[in-house]
């Protein structure tokens, strides 16, 4: 690999955390592969963001075009295709965010590149990068190679690559003329639709009792409400619970739901997919009840009970009521 490219992600003129994480991963790859590192920033009115990146990346390449703002996967794809046309061999890394989920797979086809999504670690063997990712309900770690690919696109697991500011010399920002010309797109952005607000604000709750698919298809929701009430907390959930209309969307914790920062998080029948635990910030006392001892949630929890939640919850509620006197 001669070059490592990092694609910056931003929304509403703000760089997103995925950008810094991708830069962290890119730095390490460039070092391990002896490759040059360049950060790519596509958007409109990006000067402030470009300056911030120039403090951390050795090279920043900017393309400005109003059609690149807000994020448009097709506009990005065509721009990247044009600016990367004669480059190679290279590896391009970016976050595995909901937005970039619309870019990376199509881009890999367009660039004729090999793709690995949601990578949490890289390795270099014989001068070639390999990627670690997860499969099978995120329960199995898998090492994948890119065969002899001269071009690689990889997306990165949120939170897997920690960024530390380097404070290195400030890079020059190179502006490249937009290659989009008069292109019109067959997909068009209409507008943002803001999150629905509810009567419960899980985002600011200190104590959260969260339920997942493990509560079954016809759960006794009162049982969980009583526990939450006994604990003086609120009820939250994972995505499948919202999908089944058991609780409204504003109860959903996770990357596409609400971000929470509680002191205590009790996860009942939740497997611990990264999109769920990615929504739990700070470092709460995380306790999980799950009947599968290998559930990924036990890897992030401080305490766990391996049992049927239907037996644990009533007993726990009673005991807590007792302790409160």
């Amino acid at each position: 690999m001669k070059e490592i490219f990092v694609l910056a992600e931003h929304r509403k003129q703000q760089l997103r955390d995925t950008t810094w994480e991708a830069l962290a991963a890119g730095r390490k790859l460039a070092e391990d592969l002896g490759a040059e590192l360049t950060c790519l920033l596509l958007g409109s009115n990006v000067d402030a963001m470009a300056d911030a990146l120039a403090k951390e990346a050795p090279r920043v390449l900017v393309v400005e075009d109003p059609r690149l703002e807000p994020f448009h996967p097709d506009a990005c794809m065509q721009t990247l295709k044009a600016i990367l046309a004669d480059r190679g061999p290279f590896m391009l890394v970016m976050g595995n965010s909901n937005a970039l989920l619309d870019l990376a797979p199509g881009l890999s086809v367009t660039l004729d590149a090999a793709l690995a999504t949601d990578c949490f670690k890289f390795e270099v063997r014989d001068g070639k990068p390999l990627a670690w990712r997860q499969m099978y309900s995120y329960k199995v770690n898998t090492l994948v190679s890119f065969k002899d690919a001269e071009r690689i696109v990889a997306t990165l697991r949120g939170g897997a690559f920690a960024f530390t500011p380097s404070g290195a010399a400030v890079a020059t920002v190179e502006k490249v003329a937009s290659p989009l010309g008069g292109t019109t797109f067959r997909r068009r952005f209409v507008g943002y639709v803001e999150a629905e607000k509810g009567d419960v604000d899980v985002a600011s709750a200190d104590i959260i009792v969260s339920v997942g698919r493990g509560i079954g298809d016809e759960p006794d929701m009162e049982m969980f409400e009583s526990l939450a009430e006994a604990m003086g907390g609120v009820l939250a959930c994972s995505r499948p619970i919202v999908d089944k209309n058991l609780l409204p969307k504003y109860h959903q914790v996770g990357t596409s739901g609400v971000e929470v920062k509680p002191k205590v998080y009790l996860a009942l029948g939740i497997s611990g997919a990264f999109q769920h635990v990615g929504g739990i910030k700070g470092s709460p006392l995380l306790v999980a009840v799950n009947k599968d001892p290998r559930a990924p949630i036990f890897r992030v929890a401080q305490y766990g009970i391996v049992a049927d939640l239907n037996q644990v919850v009533p007993a726990l509620t009673d005991k807590i009521k007792q302790l409160k006197g």
Binding site: S108, A113, A114, L115, A116, L130, M135, K139, V140, N141, T142, L143, V144, S145, F146, K147, A149, A288, P293, R294, P296, F298, R299, V300, A301, Q302, Y303, G304, I305, V306, A307, D308, Q311, V312, A315
Partner: peptide, 24 residues
């Protein structure tokens, strides 16, 4: 374009302290 080289299960219980005993 990609090839699986290796698969492994992360070690069990790494992380959480498991509270033992019957459910109650």
């Amino acid at each position: 374009r990609i090839r699986i080289e290796l698969m492994e299960l992360p070690p069990e219980g790494e992380g959480a302290e498991i509270i033992t005993g019957k459910a109650e």
